[in-house]
Amino acid sequence: MVLLDQTTGRYFELNQAGATTLDALLDGASLPRAAQLVSDGSREGTQQALTDLGSFLGRLTDNGLATVEEPHDSPDRIGILRKGIDAFRKTTGTARKGGGA
């Protein structure tokens, strides 16, 4: 998956784990559910995936690609891609538009 910042024209390529996680979050998955999708299914693996997810979201935010906001109705879900960021799935050519602040 590749992220495109329309304001700067910069592309950011995600590895498979990042793409799987981002897809899950964009589909409304909770943080624990997104972590389960990329973990080995064990408790320790899911905990490590949650830690890695925090780092991943931090990198997206630091690069201006995401906003991390907890919706009032569901605090374990987040708003992810900011407006002007598009996600392109390289293998299928599908695109997803960011819509956050």
Rank of each mutant, 00 (worst) to 15 (best):
G64P: 05
E69H: 15
M1P: 11
I80G: 01
L81Q: 01
Y11F: 14
L31S: 03
G18F: 06
A49G: 09
A49M: 04
T92Y: 02
P32W: 14
E13T: 06
A87P: 00
F12S: 10
L22N: 12
F88L: 05
G64R: 15
T94I: 11
G93C: 14
G93D: 07
P71Y: 11
T67V: 09
K90H: 04
P75R: 03
A24Y: 02
G64V: 04
S55G: 05
A24S: 13
T91I: 04
T61M: 09
L53M: 05
V2K: 05
D23C: 02
G79L: 14
I85N: 00
A19K: 05
P71T: 15
G58Y: 05
R59F: 08
R77G: 13
F88E: 10
G9K: 08
G99E: 06
T7M: 11
A34G: 03
F12V: 03
L50I: 11
Q6L: 12
G41H: 11
T61S: 13
A66P: 09
Y11I: 06
V68A: 11
A34D: 08
G41A: 04
P32G: 13
I78A: 01
F56M: 10
A95H: 09
T7W: 09
Y11E: 12
A29Q: 04
Q16I: 00
T51V: 07
Q16S: 11
Q36Y: 04
S55A: 14
F56A: 07
L4V: 15
A66H: 10
L26N: 01
L22K: 13
G64Q: 12
F56H: 15
R96W: 12
D76W: 09
G100A: 06
V68G: 04
L57K: 11
A49R: 07
K97G: 00
L25A: 04
K97A: 09
D62C: 00
G28R: 05
S42I: 10
L14C: 14
G41M: 01
L3Y: 03
G58Q: 07
D73V: 08
L53N: 02
D73I: 02
I78M: 09
A87C: 05
L25G: 00
S74I: 00
L57C: 06
S42V: 07
Q48C: 00
L25C: 09
D73S: 12
G28N: 06
D52Q: 14
T46H: 14
V38G: 01
F56G: 04
T51Q: 04
N15C: 02
T67I: 15
D40I: 02
Q16Y: 02
D27F: 02
G41Q: 15
A17D: 02
D27Y: 07
S74C: 13
T21V: 13
Q47V: 08
G98N: 01
L4E: 06
R10E: 15
K90A: 03
P75H: 11
K90D: 10
Y11Q: 11
V68P: 09
V2A: 12
S74R: 14
R10K: 11
T51Y: 07
